[in-house]
Design a protein around this nucleic acid. Structure first.
Lengths: 257, 257
DNA sequence: ATAAAAATAGAGCGAGCGTTCGATTTATTG
DNA sequence: CAATAAATCGAACGCTCGCTCTATTTTTAT
């Protein structure tokens, strides 16, 4: 309940400037959940949890803690990550970590909160397009951009959902179901208007969502090493390729034949 | 290395009688990794790990331990599952558990072994069809049947891979990549023969694999409760629906237009 | 410059973990 | 029906975990 309110409040205030989807570079400039502002937002949205009071320290420490969490838990999982591992990786003492957070679980909660906020921004953006087809196209593109910028966050939430309280586990599932329902609704309206042709709008919608998940869950599929941080230009190219692949696939399923 | 040998040896000996895909009921009768024989196979393939000597006890205990593992770890994950939880759920003392296994990790290793064996059987089966299209169709069908019968096993391996030694983590990824490559090869041959039409065989192959994963990873999507063990007839119906959905989708991507 | 406040350090605490072990019960065998 | 082997039991062990606490350093304010 609390987290839902958090999303509504903040998503509307953050979305003052619309996000620019013309390229990854312009997306990064306009997407609020990125760079330094990302950790400021984490701090603001979790001021009840974060113990450190001065924003300057809090933001810097949150960045170190979360980066270390992604690094350690990617290979061994959140449960196996001890706070001693974390403190070593983050270059902070246990005391510093616990002056920032109050429980290990808080780390997972903050990550989940940001991913949910990002999903909220994604679904809000889709509303702004006019044609049904561009709603779908833009939705796919936004999702790919956001889940690339926040790849470790999305990945973490998917695989560590079971570290969260049950209520939040259900919420995560619900977000996936809402994503499918959103695509399904657009498709169904297209079918009703005679613009699309399919006997199973839900299946097509589900396929889109699953392919979007594949993007941030299994970067190793695309042959790209990814670990060696590749340039924005290369990422741009890969996203363009993949979104075009999805678009063509969806067009074949909905428009042709 | 050891496990690979294990698969080759056993997959060829097990596959004496071909598996019958005409219905789920007939599949269950001919699929070796099912019912009592499943746990006998687990015992045989892990006699080096399993401490209990008499097959009668070992098989019964393995069944209790693995069933309890699936029950407990489904909600909280393998790491959070304590052996006290496990012993309570299995109705065995700690001593009994440790007279069957020698490390907690062994449980995960045995599960991973069976899923890999099942994948091996799946890919072997596909070879037996004649036409390219039926190779794809049969492969999808076999995978859906096997991952329904072994749903908790497949689910476990996907989410608990990180509890396994690194070598086995890589092996799991490789199996997914091989699955994609297998579909891609069939599709590409169809394209070369003028039977299929697509500019991105890999994308279509990947879509199939991802949809197959979706089946055992997110049973809650299909509205069916699943937890309340549904009848074989209902499962049959759902599998037929889903495989037909995938088939139609793939046909639209490859054959039409 | 100095005092108050905030942030940091890491040794230490109790709880709970995976695992072991010796006593006991159950099964097998000559 | 002994005698031996195998399986079962759960209390106990050592260790690591998440977390706390106090002394110390750094920052901020006057």
């Amino acid at each position: 309940m609390t987290s839902t309110l958090k999303i509504i409040q903040s998503a509307s205030s953050l979305n003052a400037g619309p996000t620019d989807l013309t390229s990854l570079a312009s997306f990064i400039e306009t997407f609020p959940l990125q760079g330094e502002s990302l950790y400021s937002i984490v701090f603001e949205r979790n001021s009840d949890i974060v113990q450190t009071q001065k924003a300057r320290f809090a933001v810097a420490n949150l960045e170190k803690i979360l980066a270390a969490t992604f690094a350690v838990s990617a290979t061994s999982g959140f449960d196996r990550m001890s706070l001693r591992d974390l403190s070593r990786q983050a270059g902070m003492s246990m005391g510093s970590i616990y002056s920032c957070i109050s429980k290990k679980e808080d780390i997972a909660l903050m990550i989940a909160d940001i991913v949910r906020l990002s999903s909220e921004l994604t679904s809000q953006h889709a509303m702004q397009s006019d044609s049904l087809w561009s709603k779908i196209e833009q939705s796919i593109r936004f999702h790919l951009y956001a889940s690339t910028v926040l790849q470790p966050w999305y990945f973490f939430l998917y695989f560590e959902t079971r570290c969260l309280p049950q209520e939040q586990q259900r919420e995560s599932k619900q977000i996936e179901l809402d994503g499918i329902k959103s695509f399904e609704a657009h498709i169904q309206r297209g079918v009703d208007a005679g613009e699309f042709h399919t006997s199973d709008a839900r299946m097509v919608a589900n396929t889109i969502v699953v392919l979007l998940e594949d993007w941030y869950l299994k970067p190793w599929k695309t042959l790209s090493p990814w670990k060696a941080s590749i340039s924005v230009e290369q990422q741009e190219k890969q996203i363009n390729n993949y979104s075009q692949s999805i678009n063509e696939l969806v067009r074949k399923l909905l428009v042709d034949s």
